[in-house]
Simulated assay, not measured.
Amino acid sequence: MNDVAENAVRFGRIAVMLPVKDMNRAHDFYCHVLGFRKTFENGNPVGFMILKRDAGELHLTLQPQHKPAHFNVAHMMVDDVDALHALCQRHGLRIIKSLQDKEYGLRAFVFEDPDGNRIDVGQPI
């Protein structure tokens, strides 16, 4: 017997939670560089923030002792991966995996945000 009620539960929004050491720096990067907009914040000082752009949503959580993982923590699908790659380069972000066409049908690259969070970015070929 399967414990998962396949049709009983419907999932809604699922958003990535990114730990950041400096909320203002993270806000400035995601809003002023990548074009997200803040839709919610909580705490004084702010310890949690929701950012949105198009269908994308990011949740930022203040973690002053954050040590970044050595693997991708989020995956973003975009409609112009070359333009985002160029934007990341212009802003001096560390590119972990170079822009390339993958055998699984995506043109993709991986960058680190200012807190060292590795973000995998892709566009269908």
Rank of each mutant, 00 (worst) to 15 (best):
R118P: 04
P64S: 13
Y30I: 11
F40G: 04
F29Y: 13
R118I: 07
V33E: 00
F29A: 07
G92E: 03
K97G: 00
R118M: 13
D113H: 01
D113I: 12
D113S: 02
N44H: 12
K52N: 12
Q89V: 15
E112V: 10
E6Q: 10
M1C: 09
S98W: 08
E112I: 08
P68S: 03
V33T: 14
V46N: 00
Q123V: 00
N42E: 13
F40E: 11
N72F: 03
M23T: 02
F71G: 09
F109R: 05
K21Y: 03
E57H: 06
F111T: 01
A55M: 08
L60D: 01
D22M: 05
L62I: 11
S98A: 12
G92I: 07
E103V: 14
R53E: 08
R94P: 05
F11S: 12
L60I: 05
G92P: 07
V33I: 15
R10M: 11
M49P: 04
H32W: 06
K67T: 15
G56R: 06
A15S: 15
N24Q: 15
A8F: 14
F40N: 05
L18W: 06
F109K: 01
F71Y: 12
N44T: 15
N2A: 10
P64W: 07
M77K: 08
H85T: 00
K97H: 14
H59N: 14
D28M: 00
L87S: 04
D82E: 15
V121F: 00
R94D: 15
E41P: 06
H91V: 02
D54T: 09
L106Q: 03
N7L: 07
V73H: 06
Q63E: 15
F71V: 14
G47T: 14
H66T: 13
N2V: 06
G43T: 07
R90T: 13
K67Y: 05
V81A: 08
V110A: 06
A8I: 01
R118L: 02
H32S: 15
F71R: 13
T39G: 03
M76D: 01
L106E: 05
A5C: 10
P64K: 11
E6P: 07
L93P: 02
Q89S: 10
D82A: 08
A69W: 01
R37T: 13
N44W: 02
V110W: 04
V110I: 15
L51V: 09
F11A: 14
A15V: 04
G56A: 15
M77H: 06
Y30H: 04
K97F: 07
D54V: 01
I95F: 09
E103F: 08
L58D: 03
H66V: 14
N2I: 08
H32P: 06
V16E: 02
K38H: 09
V46Y: 01
M23C: 05
D120S: 08
G105Y: 07
H75S: 11
D101R: 14
D79P: 02
G43I: 09
K67G: 03
H91M: 08
A26E: 08
R107N: 10
L34F: 14
Y30K: 03
V110H: 09
K97Y: 12
